[in-house]
Amino acid sequence: MMDSPELLFAVEVAVGGLLSGVMYALVAIGFVLIYKTSGVLNFAQGAMVLFAALTFVSLVERQVPFWAAIAVTLVIMAGLGFAIERTVLRPLSNRSPMTLFMATLGLSYVIEGAAQLIWGTQVHRLDLGVSNAPFEVGGIFISTFDLVAAAIAAAMVSVLTLFFRYTRTGLSFRAVADDTFAAIAVGLRLGRIQGTVWTAAGVVALVAGLLWGARLGVQFSLSLVVLKALPVLVLGGFDSIVGAIVAGLVIGATEKLAEVYLGPFVGGGIESWFAYAVALVVLLVRPSGLFGKKLVERY
């Protein structure tokens, strides 16, 4: 039963998967925030993650103290998000979603280029001072780093949730996401709300950048974590924060379990593509995702 080694192993794999799923959710949330208010799939989110990690690492390498570097990067990322909204998205408001998407695609190259121009192209090691040593809980081993990362992500999600639930800006954000035209008619200031949301997306990118950077090393390919976020978004729905979290966990756990239990039958290497297969099935069965906007309406 509970002490059978096979079961323990399965639980250990699942827990490891769930924890890495939190990391996927972290990136996905950045997308959801912006998608909800402006209907844009912000392809530059990955570039922002890279930019955040690179800025932080470069500051630390220049002997800036840890917390000061976090504070400075936080300000830079918030400013970057705000500036993008002002200079790129706002002049394009009322354009088609495809135009906006292309703008963010271009933007991602500009940000990646700028990041490497400023900080160089070499790979940096990012040490957050959290050990990667596993510890044992009830017979299963859990990585300390993964657990800390999950705790940080959970804290950030809680703050965001409270913010959207209980503040005026949060209320305005939900109103805009629900019916933009009505929100304008009511006098809510769209520009200000979108500025706030992009700022928040910049901060989310910082958190994701630090955690992912610590795991993978800070380098150009860090911006490719967006590719891991896409299946999460498809599964959870592009406009649901809850969906991003649940889908992140589901994808994280299933891809690890699939690797271990299905992998041997097909020669392994499942983990790298399994999430996309899941996304494909979801698209066929339930195109708006598990938690995507279903109209709250009675008939």
């Binding site: 005026r168 209320l171 305005s172 939900r174 109103a175 629900d178 019916d179 035209f181 009505a182 929100a183 008619a185 009511v186 006098g187 809510l188 109209l295 709250v296 309406e297």
Partner: peptide, 22 residues
């Protein structure tokens, strides 16, 4: 507005508060 255009996912009271926030 025509057709009411309430914020459907917000509660009735949140809808009202949104009017004051505006």
């Amino acid at each position: 507005l025509e057709g009411r255009r309430c914020f459907k996912s917000l509660t009735i009271e949140e809808n009202l508060v949104a009017g004051a926030v505006g």
